[in-house]
């Protein structure tokens, strides 16, 4: 009976895992299909003939290496930047004493409620005024601070036992020393989560890069993917081939930080 229950449990888990990963599998297998086969009815998961050349065609359809490197660089800088600025801001909100702390924090958090579309044009005009149009600055700087990341770090910092902080203060730790030696080592999961979220956000962004650049050398990976959406229809196999190639780094990144990511999500009280 025990064996049966365990088998059933695994069966259900495998079923759920397959269900969740189905879109991913669909993407990978569609990448190998012909255009006609990609829309066949009833749909088939596996291709009849494996079109490996789709990957070559997709890669050659645009300067994907350039786009890939641009996205990678922008996403890495943005993610590191967000982690640094948010760590400092959250540290101040939790461990430092200053006037209007609560009001300021609420003000920060309230910015999360303003949709990007509402401030997009104003931000664009600002970028133009700064002379950053068509530069990496425009792709990076506006995203170096994140209210959500500050909130997430704050929640995480508040769970650090006060004894640790008091002990460090008794030992004569300066605030930044406290952050470096006590808070950061205890917040690795939250840092990994913020890093991953920021990386994903930056990697997936399309509208902002389109707005602030028109130099082909500054285009990002999502721009390359959009090229497969033709006015008359979508080249699904090529789009899926390009998507498969482009999600590789994000997937690899996730495999490396998945433990910290899950801990960070559960530790900060987010679901």
């Amino acid at each position: 009976m025990k064996k049966f229950t365990a088998s059933l449990k695994y069966l259900i888990l495998y079923g759920v895992a397959f269900f969740i990963s189905f879109p991913f599998l669909w993407m990978v297998f569609t990448a190998f299909k012909s255009l006609t086969e990609s829309i066949t009815f009833p749909p088939r998961l596996f291709p009849q003939v494996w079109h490996w050349e789709n990957f070559v065609q997709a890669w050659m359809a645009a300067p994907f290496f350039r786009y890939f490197m641009n996205s990678l660089m922008v996403s890495l800088i943005v993610s590191v930047g967000v982690v640094i600025t948010s760590l400092l801001a959250a540290f101040a909100f939790v461990f430092l004493k200053f006037n209007f702390k609560k009001i300021l924090f609420n003000l920060f958090i309230s910015t999360m409620m303003i949709p990007f579309e509402a401030i997009m044009i104003q931000n664009f005009m600002l970028i133009k005024k700064f002379g950053w149009y068509n530069s990496y600055w425009a792709l990076i700087v506006p995203w170096l601070a994140s209210a959500f990341a500050i909130f997430l770090f704050r929640q995480s910092f508040m769970q650090i036992p006060k004894d640790y902080i008091e002990a460090a203060e008794l030992d004569g730790c300066f605030p930044l020393e406290l952050l470096w030696t006590v808070v950061i080592p205890l917040s690795k999961s939250a840092i990994a989560t913020v890093f991953l979220f920021s990386f994903l956000g930056s990697w997936n962004s399309l509208l902002w890069p389109i707005l602030v650049t028109d130099n082909p050398d500054l285009r990002v990976i999502q721009f390359g993917l959009a090229l497969f959406l033709e006015e008359q229809g979508t080249q699904y196999p090529l789009l899926m081939a390009a998507s498969t190639l482009t999600i590789l780094p994000v997937t690899l990144l996730y495999f490396f930080v998945q433990r910290q990511f899950i801990e960070g999500m559960t530790g900060s009280g987010l679901k």
Partner: peptide, 17 residues
């Protein structure tokens, strides 16, 4: 510049700037 909606937004931004 992207699809029509993206082109439209970019032009509106450029006009304002």
């Amino acid at each position: 510049i992207g699809r029509y909606d993206q082109l439209y937004q970019k032009i509106i931004g450029a006009i304002r700037a």
